[in-house]
Structure formats: structure tokens, C-alpha cells
Design a protein around this nucleic acid. Sequence first.
DNA 1: CGGGCAATTGAAATACATCAAGGCGTGTGG
DNA 2: CCACACGCCTTGATGTATTTCAATTGCCCG
Lengths: 252, 252
Amino acid sequence: MNVLPILKEPHPGRAPCIRSCAACPAHDLGICHGLSDAGNGRYTPPQVSLPASEHTIPARRVIFRQRDLHDVVPFICQGWAASTITLSDGSRQILLFLLPGDIVSPSLLFGPTASCSVEAITEVQYRSFKRDDLKALLTRDLELIEKVARVWNERKLQAQQLAVDLGRRTADERIARLILSLRDRLAARGLVQDQTMEFPLRQHHVADATGLTAVHVSKVLSDFRRRGLIDISDRSLTMLNPAEFQRVATMR
Amino acid sequence: MNVLPILKEPHPGRAPCIRSCAACPAHDLGICHGLSDAGNGRYTPPQVSLPASEHTIPARRVIFRQRDLHDVVPFICQGWAASTITLSDGSRQILLFLLPGDIVSPSLLFGPTASCSVEAITEVQYRSFKRDDLKALLTRDLELIEKVARVWNERKLQAQQLAVDLGRRTADERIARLILSLRDRLAARGLVQDQTMEFPLRQHHVADATGLTAVHVSKVLSDFRRRGLIDISDRSLTMLNPAEFQRVATMR
DNA sequence: CGGGCAATTGAAATACATCAAGGCGTGTGG
DNA sequence: CCACACGCCTTGATGTATTTCAATTGCCCG
């Protein structure tokens, strides 16, 4: 019946995400041979593979804490997570939403300290590789280093873009740009069809990512809906007027 | 007479900064033997050195533009610069102030595209190394890669911290934290003495870095002065009450 | 049936922007 | 040497985007 790769979430908190090894750096780097049951047709076998531990975490659970030390480098295989920083008064900033195929933190490749916490938004499945294994691989293949540098650089650009948005853009723009950037990242993984994408975020997630309050996010989203720009229902988002929505995001 | 390493700026726009090869990654990485006349006593000769081109840029001039391509990797030897992004409506976000001893952009080590523009604040002296030279060095010495990774990671952390500050902190906090972070970075280079440091920033620089307007920056700084927290005069800043100032920066 | 999370909506408060005017120091051209 | 413009900072009045507070609803779940 349901031919879309977007799965409706029957009960919030249950694995709603499609797997995407296609865009995963671990797959691209040739260190992961894909999830045991990832038979979505797009999968191609890699040349090498490293031993990995597989984990499944229910929605809303913290995966890693800010100050933890790790000797592993985790990759998201399935589900959405958020990379967050929490201030002492409890307010949070989400630095990045982690999607299937994202490395949790490139800096873990070189040191044991992650600078931020990671929380599961939906149920999350991830794979961890030993840092030492990965490092050994890097020393053997210098081209890998360039690939890693690209991934790392992309992450730095995301952080910079976020800073610009938070510093210089209005609430409307910030929210529209967040949605558009998620759409682009999902599209690159083949997870957008017909302007519709999975959208498991609560409004407080959007608020924490855009430096706003959940109340204000509600008002802005209502306004977007009233203007016929987007529709959000059943944990999925459809862009009804992509051109106009793009304009809202790019006002300045 | 003047025994402080803080030089007063007799005419705005003329080289006001102390050189600091001490904390420079180029020096640390052993690729730079220091400025020809950097005889400040802290200098120790390196093991290796690469050919470098030396440049001097007057204050207020753009050094690199957002979309330029480069086959060189520049390091700041002297003076302050700002790494900025400009939106189409002309508003700017300063992502980072570049101080003596800073690499302009670590991403230039691996690709020709810099994601942001760089503008001289004071007169700036910098050295450029050929990317190919540096890369060749990296392939020969794997320990260098780890050092580069550390520098790179620090830069990513700065971008993330900026995003948190812009997203979740008040104007008072943002400005106080900017000043404190500059103090810490200068102190690491031995450029702070007796709670006094060089401070060549105009208020519009502070505004562009904190996502505020110059008018509001003026009001906040006046308030800081009225409260006896800091004093800014003659392009230099003194922290009169460091403990209380720290508290302002860490309210949440 | 009760309780908790998520979303909505309106009213009031506030932090910051915008607008406007004036002062001060500095370089410049007559 | 003076007049003047210009960049930089300051200050006050006013406007507005966003927060805070509060009440209400629906919904899922125990």
C-alpha cells in the first residue's frame, strides 16, 4: 500500500526513520558494510569493513553526555537525534539535528571528548567503531584523511551558518531555513518525496534549534500554515509552496 | 619608558599589535621560523621551515573575499582581523576575531574555498604558505595531522560556542563573554598584563560579533563602565572587577 | 478517570532595534 | 589657521519582535 519511503509514525517514539547507508560517510569511507537488514535496493557492498557495535536507543533518551569520554566513534544508522548544549539555567541550544548517515561527532576521531550531548528524538539505531581502528585505517590511506577533512569541514560550515542565522535573522527566517536545510539533507539521502518528508520534531526542538521559545515557534508555524506555505501533520511535513517558502527564508 | 607589551596606538590604523609567534600553530608545527625581526625574547628557533610570502595590509582593508579561491594558507603574524559573513542586505556577522598567531582558516589546508571573508581591523601582517607544501609535510609526518586536527577542532568549538551565545544569551552576557574570550586568547599569547589588554575593536565590530546593533553595544558598555566593571580608553581595555565581570558573563 | 506532554491563543512585559540629534576628535582643503 | 566633513560614540524617544505568563484544549497512556 504505502509506496512512499516516508513511514508514518503510528505511535510517537517508535522507529519512524528509513535507513540510509547511501549517504553515510562510514559507508563512503568503506569501513561499514551496512546494516544487516538494510535491503532498500540502494545498498552497494563496500571494500573493507571494521568491527562495529550496534545499538538501539528509544526516543527521548540521552545517548551521550557533554563531558563523557569515548574511545568509539558512533554513526547514526536510523532515526533522528539532536546534538545539544545545555546551560546551567536549563536552557538548551541544539547545534545540529543528526540524520541517518551522519557521523555523531567528527572530533571523536581524534580525541575522546565530545563537546556536546546527543539526544535521541525518535528511536535511534547507531553503530560505533573503535577510534583506534579508524585511526589505524587513516594512517594507511591518506586519501581517507581528505574525505574525513571534507566531512569535518562541512560540520564546521553548519556551525558557522547556524551562528549567522541566530545572530542576524528573524524568527520567520530561522525557522524556514531550518526546515529547508533539513529538507536538503534528507533529499541528499533520498528521503524526500513529492515535497513531503518525515518530521518527527516537536516544536520545542525547533525552538531549541532556532534560539526561540516553543510558544513563539507555535505562532510562526501557525502563520506559515495560514499562508499556505507548509503543512505539518502526522509527524510529516509537506511544502505546499516551495518557491514562496524559499523566499521567506532568504529575505536578507 | 613604556615597559608594557601593550603598545598605545598613536594614529589609528597603524600597526598597534605585538607579534606573537609563541602561540602560532605555524611555529608550533615547525613550518615557520618566525618573523625576521621578531626579537621579543620568547622566540625559539624551529626545526623546519617552509618558504612563505609575507604581506602587510592596512587597517580596514579586506584581505580575502568569501568566494575567492586560494592555493595558500595564511597565518596572522601581527594585528587583529575579523572573519566575517555578509548577508545580501548588508548586515554582517563576525564569526571570529583573528589574533596574532591564528591560522586564518584551517579549511584552506584541504581545499581552496574559504567560507568567509577576512577583514583587517588594525594593520595586519601575515604569512602565507603554499597548500601543497603543507600537504606534503602532512603526508610525511602523521603527528602533524593530529596537531592540525586539534587546531581545527578548537575552531569548530569556537563556532559552536558562538552559536550557543547568540541563541541563548542576553546582550550583556554576549558582550561580556566576547571580551573574556578575547582576554583568554590574548593571555595565552602573553599579551595581557595587569588586567589590561589591547582592544582595537570599534563598537560596530562588537555589534557584528554579538548579533546586536552598535547603538545597543554602546549602551551596554556604558552600563559596564558605570558599574565599574571595565574601562576602555586609548584602544586598550582594563578589567577593573574581573570577578564580577565573570559573573555577568556566566549568569546562565 | 486522572495526569502529563504538546500545541494553541491572548494579554502583558521586556529586550532590543530603529530613528534622530548632538558632541568629540581628526584629517583635509581652502 | 580655520571651516568643514566624517567616523565614532552617546543619549533619549519611540517602535517592535519576542518572551513570559496564563488559561484552554486535545491526546495519549497508565
